[in-house]
């Protein structure tokens, strides 16, 4: 089980109804279902990943997330998850407003563009890459990269309530040092947001 699965398993209640936007092969939903008996739905647009979901017995909806989150409003979702997808959307702020309409509790994860390794990459004069951001600039699906500081500023301005946050270093671990200087040391941040 990876760090994200551990963390989300800890946050999600038993029997919760969960939707995962950008669910990939459905492994997170599967681990939640096994650990917490959740009813889960994934939203995914990659045909290969959709097949993985179906073969894994995960309920999946073929859809581009940009084509609308609000259609999942009023469906009694307890939890909405958007892992490493927010930076790929056309309108991240609207997406965050909308996902908070879908469920009262939302798990958002983002790659931290303020991480020191990426900063040094930029200092060398080229677009940096990392395990979290492996693609080249010309083929990346990331449209709106941001730092932890940027994201938390947006949450403050928009009054998105951050219930919990966890900063992970490039080894996918939490540490005292990373928590002291998250914007510089964290590779990834995981938030539990609410309205």
């Amino acid at each position: 089980m990876n760090a994200l699965e551990d963390i989300v398993n800890d946050w999600v209640e038993v029997n919760a109804k969960v939707i995962d936007f950008g669910c990939g092969d459905g492994s997170l939903l599967k681990s939640l279902s096994l650990a917490k008996a959740t009813t889960g739905y994934g939203v995914e647009n990659d045909p290969k990943k959709i097949q993985d979901c179906i073969a894994n017995g995960i309920s999946v909806i073929q859809q581009d997330i940009d084509a609308g989150l609000l259609q999942y409003k009023d469906m009694n979702f307890d939890f909405a998850i958007m892992a490493s997808s927010i930076q790929c959307l056309r309108k991240p702020k609207v997406a965050l407003q909308n996902i908070l309409e879908v469920a009262n509790k939302c798990v958002i994860t983002l790659p931290n563009f303020g991480n020191w390794e990426l900063r040094t990459g930029l200092l060398k004069g080229k677009m940096p890459s990392s395990p979290q951001l492996p693609a080249k600039w010309y083929e990346t699906s990331n449209l709106h990269l941001c730092t932890i500081a940027d994201f938390e500023e947006l949450c403050e301005v928009e009054k998105f309530h951050i219930h919990k946050k966890i900063y992970l270093n490039s080894q996918g671990k939490t540490s005292w040092l990373t928590n002291c200087f998250p914007n510089f040391l964290a590779a990834e941040a995981i938030y539990l947001l609410g309205k």
């Binding site: 599967k30 279902s33 096994l34 889960g40 179906i54 073969a55 894994n56 017995g57 995960i58 309920s59």
Partner: peptide, 8 residues
């Protein structure tokens, strides 16, 4: 049809 069925 053939997929695993152990979870939702």
């Amino acid at each position: 049809l053939e997929g695993r069925d152990e979870c939702s």
